[in-house]
Each structure stands twice: as C-alpha cells, then as structure tokens.
Design a protein around this nucleic acid. Sequence first.
DNA 1: TTTTCCGCTTTGTCCGACAAACGGTCTCAC
DNA 2: GTGAGACCGTTTGTCGGACAAAGCGGAAAA
Lengths: 258, 258
Amino acid sequence: MSDTIADRFDRIRVPSAYEMVAEAIEAEIVSGRLRPGDEIGTEAALVRQFGVNRSTVREGIRVLEQGGLVRREAGRKLYVCEPRYDALSSRISRALVLQDVTFRELFDAALILEVGAVEGAVAHADAEVIAALEANQSRIEQAIGNPVLLSEIDTEFHALVAHASRNRVLELAREPAALLFFPSSEMICRRVPEGGPRMVEAHRRIIDAIKARDLELARLWMRRHLVDWRKGFVRAGREIDAPVERIFARYALSRSAL
Amino acid sequence: MSDTIADRFDRIRVPSAYEMVAEAIEAEIVSGRLRPGDEIGTEAALVRQFGVNRSTVREGIRVLEQGGLVRREAGRKLYVCEPRYDALSSRISRALVLQDVTFRELFDAALILEVGAVEGAVAHADAEVIAALEANQSRIEQAIGNPVLLSEIDTEFHALVAHASRNRVLELAREPAALLFFPSSEMICRRVPEGGPRMVEAHRRIIDAIKARDLELARLWMRRHLVDWRKGFVRAGREIDAPVERIFARYALSRSAL
DNA sequence: TTTTCCGCTTTGTCCGACAAACGGTCTCAC
DNA sequence: GTGAGACCGTTTGTCGGACAAAGCGGAAAA
C-alpha cells in the first residue's frame, strides 16, 4: 500500500553510539580545539568521558583512524595527526580501479592535472623546490636502463612539480591519478628502450622552463612528456581503452601502506 | 647508542587481527571475486570463517565501511558497495580545511579542473547529459534571487559538466575542491546582487558551447564564470588569501552525510 | 486475501577478563 | 655515580559471553 504513495519523508537515521563517539572527537579536531600532535587520551579515559563501553569506543577510533584524523603511534598512544593524504589517495585510487576506469581516462586527466601543476610551478617554484628537482634529475640520469628506478624517480619528479606549485588543492587532486598512472611507466620503459632517454630529456626541459619562468615552454614539454608516455603505452602493445588492471591497485595500496 | 647509527631497518609492523580481517575482505573485493551488490555475510559467519572474536570482526568491518568498500543497508546486512566517492571526497575536503588551504589555492585549482572538465564535456557530452544540463538551466533561471538555491544548482551544474566529460578520474579529482568551492557562492550571491544573472548567463553560454562543440568558447566562458566568482568574492569583502574557514568543512561534511 | 502476531536472526552495546607490549622506576653491580 | 637489568603498573588487542532492540519471515487470525 505505502509503496504506491510517493514517499514524503526520508528514512530516519538513528546514529549509533560508536558513530557519535567518532563525531564528537572529529568535531573537536575540525573546530581546532584539538590540534595535530595533541594526544586524544587512552581508551579507558574515553570510556569514562563518553560513558560507553570500550568496544564502542574502539569502533569509533577505527572510524577516525581510517578517516586519517587520528593515528596510533606504533600500537601506543592516540594522537591527532597532521592530515595525511596518502591513505586517502590510495583509497580513491582503489575506487577508481574498482570502477574499471580506462587508461585513456587516466591519461586525459593526468594531462590536465600535470600541465596545471607545471603552470603553478612556473609561477611559484622557489629555490628549495628547484634544488630538489635538480637532485631528482641527477638521480634519474644515473638510472637510465633501470625501469624500476626510472619509474620511481619519475613519479617523484611529478610529485615535486606539483609541490612546487604551492597549491595543496591541486597537489592532492592529482595524487590518486598519479598513483595509478606513473607505476605503469615501469612497464613501458621495460618494453620501449628509448623511453628512458626521452623521459630524462623531457624532465630536463621542464626543470629549465620552470627556472626560466617560461610558461609556454613548460606546458609544451609537460604535454610532450605525457604524450610520449601514451605513445610508449601503445607501442608496448597495451590497449589505451582497456580498464586499469587491478594489479596496479594492489601495487598502489601496498606502497602507501608502508 | 643505536641512534648514532643510521637505521638500516624499518620498524616491523605486526598486523593486528582486525586489520587482517579487513584486508582479507578487501582482497576479495579488489580482486573481483566479490562484486558490488554481493553480500558479505553476517558477523557470526565471519566469526566462524576467520576464527576471531566478534569484536575483532566488527572493528575490521568499520575499517572497510570507512574505506567505502562495504556498506550496511539501514542497520542490516553488509553489502559490497559500488564505489561511492562522496564519503571519500568529503574526507579529503576536511583534510584540506585542516591544512588551512587558502581560497586562492582553491580558486587556482578549480580553474584548472573546471576548464579541464568542460574541455572533456565538449568532446564527449551526449544527448542525455545535455538534457540534464538544460533542465538544470531552466531551474536556475527560476532561482535568481534565491542565493541558497542558486548555489545548489550551480554546484550541480558543475558536477554535470564534469560528468559530461565521461572521465571518472577527472570527475573525482575535482570533487573535493568543488565541495569547498561552490558553497561559498551562496555567500557571494547574497552580497553581490548582480552575481545571479551573470552566473545564469555564463551557464547558458557554456551549455551552448558544449552543444556546438566549440572548445575555445567553452573554455572562455568557464574561465570567465570562475573569474566572476573571484571578483564577487573580493567584492563581498573577503580576503582571497585567507584560509577556507572551518565552517565550510562542516557544511560539506553534513551534506555528504545525508 | 489481507492483516496481525509471534518467534528467529542479526546487530549494537555492554561486562568482565587476560596476555603481550610498553613506560617508568627501582635496584644492583661496576 | 652510572649504566644495565629486573620489576611493576598501564594500555592495547583480543576473547568469551550476554542482552535489548530492530528487522525478517512465516503462522495464525480476520
């Protein structure tokens, strides 16, 4: 009977105790009354304050831990943590993989995000970041011929460029895609031998463009660098419209768990 | 003594039982052996299978729930859920707020992400999404003068544009920023009366450009639309380099919790 | 056939308990 | 006096058992 009438009201959600525990602590953190580094207190203390059972407190703590708001230092005290992205990014990467996003989507998004990041880097890079980029460059020049190292250093390069933009929103926005995108360059370098040198040259040009504050040149070489990746991907015999395999998700996850 | 020697080994992390429970179930989901919609089983069943206590199983379940991998249907059975972003995006928004990102960062990132999204929309929008955009437009034309509605419909408009790009990576990448960015347009419309009509015109032009597959025009009007926002922000007397207030985080969180 | 009621299942919460790991203190040998 | 080691209380991770409330399904009643 009632299913023939349009529902006027939403279902009422009664929050459970462990959710209220989590929300109470979260409110303290979001409002700033608890600051990163502060300790939350022992489980027993929380039991006293909230007047609920320890199991309930513990479930609430799990929620906060997963949300990246608190952190347990090596099985010991609970601290409010300075917001860490890694855990969140890897969770998003996992969601992307589960949705079977394609490499084309990944590539199109990376093009937008990485070019955006290098634009920001041209505008805001300071000496410190540029030094880090140069250090990265000298390492990658040593690593030609070693696909595993190449891919790792390349991933770090792009993270550094994003960091140079001094835009934490952008830095975060690109991370889930990067986590899935760059590991595959290992596979490419393995199968396309000229991939390594081309990558090293592109990085060199990008760093130079950032140092020269040359927006157009930076854009150009970042774009070229990524298009190279796509070419290599195809030449390595991969289908660009195929979904990102779930293998990569596992890889991204296991790395971030460390 | 040992702190004078460079540490060779990382601390060994012994995974606790509830983490292993969570990982075991996660592995089933990521590998595809458990598909969205499948049910996980009752807590009692998991207790039997894993041979651990129910409290332990429950903590593991909390972890998965927060990770957006499983979902409890109204206090009842556990299902593998089709990956939902909302929860994850709001968590990232929260992290951004806690880092005190500025409106300028938000604006710069939104410029890159939204222009990127509209580029994708020009390339990939289909009739269905365009119809949805038109419906959104007719609603916003009715809403001029109502800041709350305007801001809501504007937020939906941008989500639709991103969806039209048929790029789930980009769609997801923009969401955390959007969650923080667009709600503030309510404040702007409230204080800058001509904001409403300008927003409506920009949307109209963007939709037309998408329909005409005119890349440059779409870019132009999206950029103009966002720059308008920034102008309004300043004219409303707000400081663009000030951190996003924590109020907005709460707003974004409470919306996504529904 | 429809409504109502009853009992079973499952979740949310509680209580009490214990081993292992950790932190701090105290003692003892040097 | 100082350092090493033993000792002890605290805290976490896990366990077993228990109960009320809510949801589900089938039987009984209208």
